[in-house]
Design a protein around this nucleic acid. Structure first.
Lengths: 329, 329
DNA sequence: TCATAGTGTGTAACCCGTTACATATAAAAG
DNA sequence: CTTTTATATGTAACGGGTTACACACTATGA
């Protein structure tokens, strides 16, 4: 690999001049510039980013922490972040945390040792104490981390209310909820939105809520429990699309037809929801947009020093598909 | 951030001695070692990986190139690679290439400038010329790149034969194939495996093969075309699971029941295939294992210099689920 | 007792860029 | 004609580690 010295020698200038040509700063005579450019091309010289990083204390790298790449929501998010980071000439590092504090902490240390410039974090487990160890810009995505930290989220509670309202508008008389994990704030928000709409109904029981842990298997089991416990459920609000796939399977296994016996609505709007049979009615997040926005905010924080911690909340949108009855009241 | 100089000063030794303690090489008196260790702890010192990388020309980073993170096969693969790289203290970089040569080339350049230690590549587009520009260890995954380059793949052709044989054993009399893209070698291998089994049957027509591009939508359309063109198809071998989800949807839209009217078998064994209705019978790749193996081979190439280009081929395994009839002949 | 091997530690060069500072010339301003 | 200012380029320090080499001391063996 050619170094800047080789270029300098070939172009008969100092390395400082080559550096000026590379970075387009300082004064360089047009003729000199051409000589240097020619030498660069001739040697196929590419500057060594590691040396640059060492001097600048910056690496042009950004990391995204996600709990689980196997949940299709996160690849969609990751894709948005990656696209945006690439547009700004950053390199993208993906970290699976399994919502495990130790993994998160290990990653934070390792990445800071590499002078990574910033982190986008989807986490429900990081404590304020851990966050305090982070010396670089951070944006929380999908789940809020802390009031001091910028975040990009959606209106989970309001969106969930709308979901339940929609089931009601279809004539559902008894609506259950498969909730996400209790330690995840957006799962709680969604549960609250559900409760806002149903807690004053005379048919409401706390036993209409089961936890599905944001996992396919757990949600399937939770749905089976619900449907066995309350055979007269005719509406189901599932905390995310992935769990809804499990819920569909559960209904099928019990011989319950969706949507004619049971209307089901979920949350997230992942592509997977279009491919199930029946396809999923859902409150869709603008997944690509929120990922892109988070990346954009992070890069702004990195490139400008004015750390105005502003947060962004997007709205979800009802997408009507086959898992809910069509006969709107 | 504390540097090695701060530690040296506090422990009253030279930076060389601190370095020796850190790397556990060279001679250091036990007592000195303790003093240094104490200073490191006291300052919460973490060595700067960028400085290390600059000197060593190594970064302890590995990149994985995948065509499309939205195809669930690749997150599963990525997960395996990431786990393995983490086990060996490497940092994991994920690159979506969209099977686009320009993106691939841009990534290759950018990563080499960062002294990334090695690449694991899933690609059908990289040319020998591009590969020649890569100065670091490479392992091809899922698709072969070149004879000079180590690869980890599965027995696509033989596995496809087994798939078709299984359909035959169930009594299928006319078997069609939804193939992957023509420029992807494993798609061609799978098509060949299909042809091996059917080309001498008197019912065989070339029009029983349609291309689904390894995409949900394209595969759905391809299946509709097939089923309309040949209403008497009673067996379908789909080139991967993702396309099979589209094929299921297509059959459903035409009122064709799977498996009673049509037995369907696919390829890959992604988790998604368990969640569909009916669930997918498939030739399962050991996805996690092949990802892990590729990472292992790459790390071995990085850490030892004996570049024996060996390749590994895994076997796929038939997993019987609901999309094929149970009444085995 | 002296050569030799093993132990312990420091000095300084090196990895490859970037940039503060110094120097020099030419052009514009006073 | 002198002082500024803009242009052009080089020297050398710096970022934070690693390690070749030099030097000093101790223990071992002949």
């Amino acid at each position: 690999m050619a170094t800047i010295k080789d270029v300098a020698k070939l172009a008969e200038v100092s390395t400082a001049t080559v550096s000026r040509v590379l970075n387009e700063n300082g004064y360089v005579h047009e003729e000199t510039k051409n000589r240097v450019a020619k030498a660069i091309k001739q040697l196929n010289y590419k500057p060594n980013d590691v040396a640059r990083s060492l001097f600048k204390g910056r690496s042009k790298m950004i990391a995204l922490f996600i709990p689980d790449i196997m949940n299709p929501f996160f690849p969609e998010l990751a894709r948005a972040v990656e696209d945006m980071t690439k547009n700004h000439d950053f390199t993208f590092i993906l970290c699976n945390t399994d919502d495990d504090i130790e993994k998160e902490t290990a990653y934070i240390d390792a990445l800071q040792q590499k002078s990574v410039d910033g982190l986008i974090i989807v986490s429900s487990t990081l404590t304020p104490e851990q966050l305090h160890h982070i010396q670089i810009p951070v944006v929380a995505l999908d789940r809020k981390l802390n009031n001091g930290i910028a975040s990009v989220t959606v209106n989970n509670r309001e969106g969930s209310r709308q979901a339940v309202q929609y089931l009601k508008s279809l004539g559902c008389k008894k609506i259950a909820h498969v909730a996400g994990p209790e330690h995840v704030d957006n799962a709680n928000e969604r549960r609250r939105g559900y409760l806002d709409e149903v807690q004053n109904e005379d048919w409401f029981r706390l036993s209409l809520v089961e936890h599905g842990e944001y996992h396919y298997d757990a949600a399937k089991q939770a749905t089976i429990n619900l449907l066995k416990r309350h055979p007269d459920i005719d509406g189901l609000f599932v905390g995310n699309d992935l769990m809804a796939v499990g819920a569909l399977k559960a209904a099928e296994s019990l011989g319950i037809n969706v949507p004619s016996d049971l209307s089901m609505i979920a949350f997230d709007g992942i592509t997977l929801g279009e491919t199930t049979s029946p396809s999923l009615t859902t409150m869709a997040q603008p997944i690509y947009q929120i990922g892109a926005k988070a990346a954009e905010m992070l890069i702004k924080q990195i490139e400008e020093e004015d750390t105005l911690t502003q947060s962004e909340e997007f709205s979800v949108q009802l997408i009507k598909r086959e898992s809910t009855r069509r006969d709107e009241a």
